[in-house]
Nucleic acid binder design. Structure first.
Length: 106
DNA sequence: CTTTTGACTGAGT
DNA sequence: AACTCAGCCAAAA
């Protein structure tokens, strides 16, 4: 099991209707300074369609970069389908939708 | 092998 | 509030 697997496991744990940041996932995997690795793991995501990478956003709650599994529009649609609402700037209200795990372990 | 780059973040200016 | 700098570490050139 490589580091990627840990990232995928955490991402898969994100409950529907919630989102998590790269840093948060990194922290959950035990490496709070490896947010970039999380991003890289998802970039190399061999489990596209299996790992809900659309629930992973940057610290500001906005959709990552200009590309994704199909495009930011698809990601937005998927998140709205999860019950998440975007603001005027297509930013997610982290105050409401940020995933707040009870424990930083497992 | 060395250098650049990147789905990031937090601190500093 | 917007921009820059520095850390992190793996893959690609």
């Amino acid at each position: 099991m490589g580091y990627f697997e840990e990232v995928y496991e955490v991402v898969k744990k994100i409950p529907k209707g919630k989102v998590a940041t790269y840093g948060q996932i990194a922290a959950l995997t035990g490496f709070p300074r490896r947010a970039r690795m999380v991003g890289w793991a998802l970039h190399a995501n061999p489990y596209r369609g299996i790992v809900p990478c659309h629930r992973v956003v940057n610290r500001n709650g906005e959709l990552s970069g200009g590309f994704a599994f199909g495009g930011p529009e698809v990601q937005k649609m998927l998140l709205e389908n999860e019950g998440i609402i975007f603001d005027e700037n297509d930013i997610i209200n982290l105050d409401k939708y940020l995933w707040k795990p009870h424990k930083y372990e497992e």
